[in-house]
Design a protein around this nucleic acid. Sequence first.
DNA 1: TTGACATAACACCTTTTGGTTATATATAAT
DNA 2: ATTATATATAACCAAAAGGTGTTATGTCAA
Lengths: 107, 107
Amino acid sequence: MEEVVKKVDVFQAIADPTRRDVLRLLANKERSIAEISSHYDMSRTAIVKHLNVLTDAGLVNGQKSGREKVYHLQPEPLTEVKQWLDYYEQFWNNKLSRLKFLVENEE
Amino acid sequence: MEEVVKKVDVFQAIADPTRRDVLRLLANKERSIAEISSHYDMSRTAIVKHLNVLTDAGLVNGQKSGREKVYHLQPEPLTEVKQWLDYYEQFWNNKLSRLKFLVENEE
DNA sequence: TTGACATAACACCTTTTGGTTATATATAAT
DNA sequence: ATTATATATAACCAAAAGGTGTTATGTCAA
C-alpha cells in the first residue's frame, strides 16, 4: 500500500513564482530534472527542493526512468484553488452574477 | 496623490490560511481590527501584520473611522489568480473542454 | 480634563524558506 | 572495467515569515 500523504497546502505550493513556472513547463510535456533545471539560474538541488514541495502538494509526480527521473503535471489539486476562488467571483463579476449568487444562496 | 504600490504578490498573500480566513471574514462585511482579531488565538499585532500583507497585495483596504480602522475586501487582484488557473482547467475538466482549448489555440 | 480604548510603532525571538556546496550512489555508454 | 551522467542526500547559511511583548499616540466619552 502506498499512502500518499499531502504534506503541503496547494496554496503554499503555488505561492512561489519558480514553482508556478515549473508547473507551466510541465504542462507542455513531462521533463527530467536536468531538463527542468536547465531553464533556471539556480542550482539543480534548489530545483529538486521545489519539485519536492510540488510533489508533497500532489501537483507533480516523478517517475524514475533509467537514470533519469521524469516529472509530469498532476493538476487535480488546483481544483481546490478554483473552488476557493469561485466564492469570490460574485464580488468582481457583474451585478448579474452577484444577483445570481444571492438568489442561489437565498440570502 | 496617493500612489498605491503593489508590493506583495497575490499568490503569496493567499498562501497563508489565516489570511484566507480573514478574507472570508471581510467578504461578509467590513470589520475593525479589533473585531477581526477577536476571531483568532494570535495577538492583535500578528493580525495587523497579516492585514498589512493583504493590503500590500491590494486585497483589502483599511480606512480610519474615528479611532477605529475598518477594513473591507477588495477582490480585484484575485482575477490574476483566476486567469492563471484558467490555463490549467483544460487538464482536469472533461474531454470536451480539452478539445475546446485545443481548437481555440489551433494546436 | 481625565481615563479608557483602539491602533501604531518598536524591539526582539524562533522557525521556515530558498538557496548554496560537497559528497555519494546508480545507471549508461564506451 | 572505466568513465561520464543523472539523481539523492547532507550540512550549512542568510533572509524572510510569523509570532511575541512593550511602549507610544491619538480619539472618544464621562
